[in-house]
Design a protein around this nucleic acid. Structure first.
Lengths: 252, 252
DNA sequence: CGTTCTATTGAGGGAAGTCAACAGTGGTGG
DNA sequence: CCACCACTGTTGACTTCCCTCAATAGAACG
């Protein structure tokens, strides 16, 4: 059991604090978490569909995709996760994985035991509430992705996804929305948008030629934010960023 | 403030108990909830995107769709909710709606104040945990719907949706998976699967002609369950029905 | 300095969308 | 009790967006 520096846990605490009010004691409890630091190579699944897990994974660096799979092997990414996210926090209350997690670029994760997460959640109601709210925030993203994939054309789908990641990277303190790092291949972008790699390529070319966004060598540069928002029909309400929200019960 | 009979709350308690262990005291706290009973006519939105809500809606009878919307008015349903479901339980921790709720058939809902839900959650950790887990279960359905809409053809999409609703109706005690009531139009089915009404019609005709499933006058009859599961690539793992799961903290 | 993964482009095909017309169904009021 | 009206379901003809297959160029890695 490694004792990671705060540098791994601080982004996680920041993400929670974006939506939930935490007391200093609760913050300390989270910063006191420990786990195994594990490097994961590109395109390696570190949680597979059907696994029973006894820990949750905190993204320390890199990029993670949550995915579902068909029996023919085709995949659909259902959410992207950046450093500070805990993509399977929900496994604390649902330990059998109905999903998979894969590294989309060389990634480092911190595996935190469910027993530790349970302990601090049971000791601090505010942490249980923050975890609950965090799972709701992820669920809200899934829900928006259903809309994106179900009722938008290829250009809008990509525009929407890029808007979402721009805001999330900005909020996580990783550059601003005009330019951020998104180390993902066009093929994985296709799995995230329900398209094919070829069509993602053509669609990105179109966005590039219209001088709206450039996605090259892992860096996304948005030249015309307003138009990208308009093309993607993007409304950030689903991201639950108008918090932090009031606590259910008074702080201890 | 009406005091509804147990008949409205019992299915909600049963749904929670499918996945979470609740003490008798916790069960009583849930059965003691009260709220406003409201009838909703077909295709009336009773929560609109962007609303600030101070209550959650329990489906007493009928069928509810959670949906997202594009600025051109096109809609995508992201989850169906049957009696006993609380489609916006998550609004307890996230009161600004990034989604909408609409009645797909004449429906009755029970509006329960957030303050009441917060109170029982703060008094009983097991209830907070059950609410958290219930939100995770809904999120898991959203996530599967992303896969369904993003990476399956029209026939598989409909097959998968029908399998899901068959299992859910069965678990909710509303008939068995071979035959259940699903009062939804083909047009709304299209909004749930990311297709058009016309194509849903053609696809249902195909499933009917292959003697796999009949969907007529609000009743779905599945003649060949195994083949429907196969066509829809359906695996019920995402539904989190292998519980109830252990409690985070010992029962009080 | 080759090997492998990723990006790019073209040509052709297919699944689902669009438009349009009509038939069936259920509810409502005269 | 029936006649009407609005909604839903059904089908055909045509279109379009995206997929498939295939080949090549470029980039990253040891």
């Amino acid at each position: 059991m490694d004792h990671p520096q705060g540098s791994a846990l601080q982004p996680f605490l920041s993400r929670l604090a974006l939506r939930s009010l935490l007391t200093p004691a609760e913050g300390n409890a989270i910063m006191g978490l420990s786990g195994h630091v594990t490097p994961v190579a590109t395109h390696v699944d570190f949680v597979s569909v059907g696994d029973h897990v006894d820990h949750s994974c905190l993204v320390v660096s890199g990029l993670v995709g949550r995915f579902g799979q068909n029996s023919d092997g085709s995949r659909q990414i259902t959410c992207l996760h950046i450093p500070g996210d805990m993509p399977d926090l929900h496994s604390v209350v649902s330990p059998k994985a109905g999903w998979g997690l894969t590294a989309l670029t060389p990634t480092t994760i911190l595996r935190v035991a469910h027993s530790d997460l349970r302990y601090i959640a049971s000791q601090h109601f505010g942490i249980a509430e923050a975890f609950w709210r965090d799972c709701v925030a992820d669920g809200s993203i899934f829900s928006e992705w259903v809309v994106n994939v179900g009722r938008r054309g290829a250009t809008a789908r990509l525009a929407h996804l890029l808007c979402e990641m721009a805001i999330r990277c900005e909020r996580a303190g990783q550059g601003d929305r005009r330019s951020f790092v998104l180390p993902i291949t066009q093929s994985d972008l296709a799995d995230a948008t329900g398209l094919t790699g070829v069509h993602v390529n053509r669609t990105l070319r179109e966005l590039r030629s219209r001088s709206i966004v450039t996605a090259r060598s892992k860096v996304v540069t948005i030249h015309d934010w307003d138009q990208l928002v308009s093309i993607g029909d993007f409304d950030d309400a689903f991201m639950m960023l108008d918090g932090p929200y009031p606590r259910i019960a008074a702080a201890a």
